[in-house]
């Protein structure tokens, strides 16, 4: 078969690469923000805040490239689904990056105070969220709907973590109200991690549409 639309194909590969780069950055941000929290490392947290500008810049590049391809290439079928999915994935990744920045900022605030308790569940939850983002992007690159669907069970796990962390911290605050200023940010952080898991699930839903042409959003899974 003759390779046709070589230029267009290169541009699609470029879109793929941009999203992967962006994904790599936000995965690092999730990990570093929680690592900074765990080690009370304000310097590490600061690098997460700094990285966000680059993430934002790539998001603009992704949008720009997608719009250009829509306007100039009249993409159809699988290409059309890839490009529109690319735009949505870019926007989900940008939101994930923002949530990681917010976690990093809480880590900076908490860095000069002793930790409420050694963190166990939050790092585990962060690891899960990071894994979900990674898997969602992997399924995007491989156009693998089955892999994307694995995220539904991961999302339930993330929700369980959030509930577990919430209950534990409420218990601590009940015992000693003076812990509230240090406990509340942790509740917010677990809520952010859960939002990150939701964004990863959104990406997975878009991947199923991209791979199979089926809309599964807002449908019982």
């Amino acid at each position: 078969m003759i390779e046709q639309r070589e230029h267009f194909q290169k541009e699609l590969t470029k879109l793929n690469d941009l999203i992967l780069r962006m994904g790599g950055m936000v995965e690092k941000s999730i990990f570093d923000s929680v690592e900074a929290l765990r080690k009370s490392d304000a310097g590490l947290a600061q690098t997460v805040v700094m990285l966000d500008d680059k993430v934002d810049k790539i998001e603009l590049e992704v949008d720009d490239l997608c719009l250009e391809l829509l306007a100039t290439q009249q993409p159809m079928a699988g290409d059309l689904r890839f490009i529109t999915t690319g735009m949505r994935v870019g926007s989900d990744l940008e939101r994930i990056g923002d949530l990681a920045v917010d976690i990093a900022q809480r880590a900076i605030e908490l860095a000069d105070q002793p930790l409420l308790k050694p963190l166990v569940d939050i790092p585990k939850m962060a690891e899960l969220a990071e894994k979900m983002v990674h898997k969602a992007l992997d399924s995007f690159v491989k156009r693998d709907a089955a892999m994307a669907r694995e995220l539904w069970t991961d999302e339930e796990k993330a929700d369980n973590y959030r509930d577990l962390i919430y209950d534990e911290l409420v218990e601590i605050m009940n015992q000693d109200t003076k812990t509230t200023p240090r406990a509340l940010p942790l509740i917010i952080i677990s809520r952010h991690l859960e939002r990150i898991a939701d964004h990863a699930t959104n990406i997975a839903e878009d991947v199923v549409y991209m791979a199979e042409g089926k809309v599964i959003k807002h449908a019982p899974k």
Binding site: M1, Q4, R5, M76, A77, G78, L80, R81, K214
Partner: peptide, 19 residues
């Protein structure tokens, strides 16, 4: 047909990858 064709040959034609 133009967003999610079922047949690979349709997909190849409308995405301009027809050899």
């Amino acid at each position: 047909i133009f967003t999610a064709p079922k047949d690979k040959r349709t997909e190849d034609y409308i995405t301009g990858r027809f050899g």
